[in-house]
Design a protein around this nucleic acid. Sequence first.
DNA 1: CGTGTTCTTGATGATCATCAAAGGTGGTGG
DNA 2: CCACCACCTTTGATGATCATCAAGAACACG
Lengths: 247, 247
Amino acid sequence: MNPLDAARRLVGDALGQDEICGTCGSRVAGLCKPLDAATLDDVLAEAEHVVFDARDYLFQEGDRAGHVFTLVTGTAKLVRLLPDGREQVVGFRFTGDVLGYTTGSTYPFAAQLLTGATICRLDRPRLDALMRQYPALERRFLDLCIQELAATQDQLVTVGRRTAEARLAAFLLSLADNGQRRDRVGPVLEMPMTRADIADFLGLTLETVSRGFTAFRRRGWIREPSHGRVELLKRGALQELTDGEAG
Amino acid sequence: MNPLDAARRLVGDALGQDEICGTCGSRVAGLCKPLDAATLDDVLAEAEHVVFDARDYLFQEGDRAGHVFTLVTGTAKLVRLLPDGREQVVGFRFTGDVLGYTTGSTYPFAAQLLTGATICRLDRPRLDALMRQYPALERRFLDLCIQELAATQDQLVTVGRRTAEARLAAFLLSLADNGQRRDRVGPVLEMPMTRADIADFLGLTLETVSRGFTAFRRRGWIREPSHGRVELLKRGALQELTDGEAG
DNA sequence: CGTGTTCTTGATGATCATCAAAGGTGGTGG
DNA sequence: CCACCACCTTTGATGATCATCAAGAACACG
């Protein structure tokens, strides 16, 4: 069952009901995690749920920042454009993550979906009102922002100071960490991004990324059971590569 | 007069008095900018001023996050270490900037001074108390964090997708923007960082950075009137380079 | 005035981008 | 249901960019 179908079914069954909203609120990375039940109800009463297709943009770079989004289901990439049209992926966002919060008036990057997705969306006027009412919400955004900052700095280290294969290894390990935080079962990771997406994230070309995957496969470090999935067979080897102890 | 002497003199004359504290509070990037006078007095009463030498660390990566710092005078670099000892500079901080705020228990990077500096320092327990009292302070940190995030994403674009000379041009232009925000007079920019610092920031080697400066000098795009200073003579040319319209 | 640090410049080579083409895969419509 | 088509992926050949190694020059400091 592909993610889009899953999302549609979920929404069809339970749009606006506690089942979905519970999901919004209970995720590790979710917006409402530290809120008590009464507050949560207030917040969720204001939010709306929407379904998007793969490749849809939640927002473009420079758009008026009118909403904050939570990914109930699906994966997205955050993209900055260069004047000449090339793009840099500044991050990926997964089920449970929050996107698009800014104190500025426009989004500083675009958010494009890699899969179909169910989105929980809250508009800025309502969010501002809720934040005045519940200061814990503002604190939550600060926590999230500090986490994002740390992750972006990590990425800067990866792109600035590692070889192509080491970057790829770091990417795969971060995917795995991500899966764990979301308590996904089993050793096989979902990887909905294309080689081009990964290249734009790592500051490489898609050819170089492809060669990296091939090399890891040949060495028996990874396995790709199907499109959009990886399994890390030798984490130690990947870790050594990122740590620079390459032989 | 070197920056260290300037800092020492300033502190010797006016430590703890309104003159310095006014400086903390009035800067564009300062912590207390949006606070009213009464709040500002409360915050400043809790802060202490300290003088550091060039190369001192305000904190190391992994230290307990016990203080928040404002640079009253001086320049610092923020550094992440790799397992093999190489380092990535994730940002520079200038007079008026705030450093070291995190909701976590340890600093995720080190802060090392490039020049002597006067620091306005506030410990976490007091800061937390002040934030409970003045929610505007928390909001201020969120603003700052979002700005830092945007700047770090910009840097990711630079390091991931631009050539060596284009990175250097972007760096010089950002220095100039920074100077403007601080309403520095005249066309000559302070540049207290070494070629190695710049290289570690741009994901290059110090030799490549040096060659870049030489190339820009030869083309008449920049001038270095003395150590630690630059003047941008052809901003348009530098801008074209970063925008990728290089011929 | 000597010493350590930073900066410059050159020579060489490795890494990775670029260009090119063919093989897969999934989705769509006939 | 099959065939076609668009997109993604793989693989190869070549070359440019930038790292590395090396040595000398300029500068700051004691």
